[in-house]
Structures are given as C-alpha cells and as structure tokens.
C-alpha cells in the first residue's frame, strides 16, 4: 500500500515542516541554530495538554493557547538569552541555546516527571475511505491545520509589511535599519512566528501519537533541523519541502522493514542530499555577506 504510506508520511512530514520552519527562519535572520527550538515545541505540546485537561478546552482553543504561550516564550528567549550575545562570537549564542534546551527539558521533567503522558481524549477519531487509502480524522486535522499555517506564513512573508522587513533584515541589517526598519523588532517577530508554528506542531504530534514527554523535542527537533538543512537552511519553502521529504522517507523506511533504524533515516538522507547539493535542495549558493 504505497499510497497509504505516502499519505501517512506526508502527515508526519507536515509536523516536521512546522518545526523546521522555525529553525530556518531564525537561522535566516540571525544565523543561529536555535537549539532550544525543539523544547519550544515540547512546551507547546504540554500547554495543549494543560488547556484540555485543566481548563476543559477544545482542540482549537488549546492549540491557540499553546501557540500564544510559545510566542511569549520564544520572544523572551531571544530577548534575554540571545540578544545580549549578538555582538559576541558566534559560538556564544549557540552555547546559550544548548543550555536553554537542557534547562527546559529538566524543568518540564521536574514539573511533569520523565515519563511520557497520554494526550487527553478531545474527540472521537474516525476513519474515512478514499478509494484504496484510509485517512483518519486526526490526519485530516493535521493536514488542514499545517496547510493553513503554512499558507498564512507564506502570505505574511510575501505580502505583509513586517514579513517583507523579515526578508530585508535577513539580507542586510544595516541597510534595513537605514530604511527605518526596527531590526530588533523584526527579529522578535521572527521568533514569535517560528515558536507559534513549533507549538502547533507539538499539539498536533501529541494528538497524532497520543503521547507527550519532556524529551519529545530532542528527536523531533533534530529531525526537523535535518529537514531545514536538507531543504536549504534559511529557505522557507525549503523547510516545508525538507519536512515532507523526511516524513515520507521515514514512513516508507519503516514500512520497508527498517523500523529499527527509523530515527537514522532523516540523518542518512541529509548526508546523501548534502553530498550532492551542499546548500540543500532549495538553498542558495553560498555567498559572503558584504
């Protein structure tokens, strides 16, 4: 059932893509691999669980709350953990990011314990037949939500003033500032968008696999990072494509009997792609900034 596996792969890939977008956007604007991004995704999933169990909210409200919480978290992290280090060596913010990642995992373990917890039951799942393939209600939700968010992102970056400013700032800070762009505000906005997408990914993955854990951001984060690099770090369509690519490859790999190696598939794929295209599928040729 190839088409069935591809559909499952696309669903998984859509969640990787949501996370990968944050890596690529942040890298595009401040050339930092935000190693705490996987933890933002994890916190998003927990906020979703919290909204459903404690506040008895439905999926839509919980999703929105998780996104909002992670916007605040992402912007705060940038402001206090990265911005003060912007003029230091490139390694400093990277170390800060790794530290934050460990801190957030530990904090969540302290609050919730190290064991995975089940995602609360928000609705009856159902299976629909589409010719030879079956699609579940959860899969439909994931695909619809992910598509809407990515379409929204595309719209912002392409047509909205602040989105255009993001593109300008990712090319040239100084010249952007000369245009009257408040570059710090644009960087905050980038973190806000990236974090909200990761939070949505966290809630959707929790729903899909029916489980959340303080360590869920580690593997998912690494794979999404692979997706971003594979697509061409800094490229928004690249991150979407990379996410889908890895999701499909992983699902096909498992179906093909490589389930023991499932977490290695993304990395193997990354190595192969980079051998042939060092800047990723949609990456720009390397050029020096003036």
């Amino acid at each position: 059932m190839l088409s069935q596996q591809i559909l499952n792969g696309i669903t998984l890939g859509a969640t990787y893509a949501l996370i990968a977008l944050g890596y690529t956007m942040v890298y595009g604007i401040i050339q930092l691999i935000n190693f705490a991004h996987g933890e933002i995704y994890m916190v998003g999933a927990f906020v979703g669980v919290f909204m459903i169990t404690v506040f008895q909210q439905g999926l839509v409200v919980s999703l929105a709350a998780a996104m909002l919480a992670c916007v605040i978290m992402g912007v705060t992290i940038e402001r206090f953990a990265y911005r003060p280090l912007r003029r230091s060596t490139r390694l400093a913010p990277l170390i800060s990011a790794i530290g934050l990642s460990i801190f957030l995992q530990t904090l969540m373990t302290k609050i919730k314990g190290p064991q995975p917890i089940p995602f609360p039951h928000v609705m009856e799942d159902a299976l629909y037949k589409l010719g030879p393939i079956e699609i579940s209600k959860v899969q439909i939700i994931i695909l619809v939500v992910a598509s809407l968010l990515m379409a929204g992102l595309h719209f912002i970056v392409k047509y909205v003033k602040i989105g255009k400013a993001m593109r300008a700032a990712s090319e040239d800070y100084d010249t952007s500032a000369l245009m009257g762009i408040n570059v710090n505000r644009v960087i905050s906005f980038t973190f806000a968008i990236g974090s909200s997408l990761a939070a949505a990914g966290g809630v959707l993955v929790g729903l899909y696999f029916n489980s959340v854990s303080p360590f869920m951001g580690v593997t998912a984060g690494l794979k999404a990072f692979c997706a971003a690099v594979l697509g061409g770090i800094g490229s928004i369509p690249g991150a979407m494509l990379g996410g889908l690519f890895i999701g499909v490859a992983e699902t096909l790999g498992i179906a093909g009997g490589f389930d023991t190696y499932k977490d290695a598939i993304a990395f193997t794929l990354l190595i192969i792609v980079l051998l042939f295209r060092p800047t990723g599928l949609l990456g720009r040729p390397i050029q020096k900034k003036v």
Binding site: K161, K164, A165, R167, A168, E171, M179, I181
Partner: peptide, 12 residues
C-alpha cells in the same frame, strides 16, 4: 535587497 523585487525595495 538583492532577493527582493524592485518594487519591494522601494516599499522598504
């Protein structure tokens, strides 16, 4: 801004 169009540069 080399990766933006002429019109977008003017808008910036």
């Amino acid at each position: 801004f080399t990766r933006m169009t002429v019109l977008e540069n003017l808008e910036m």
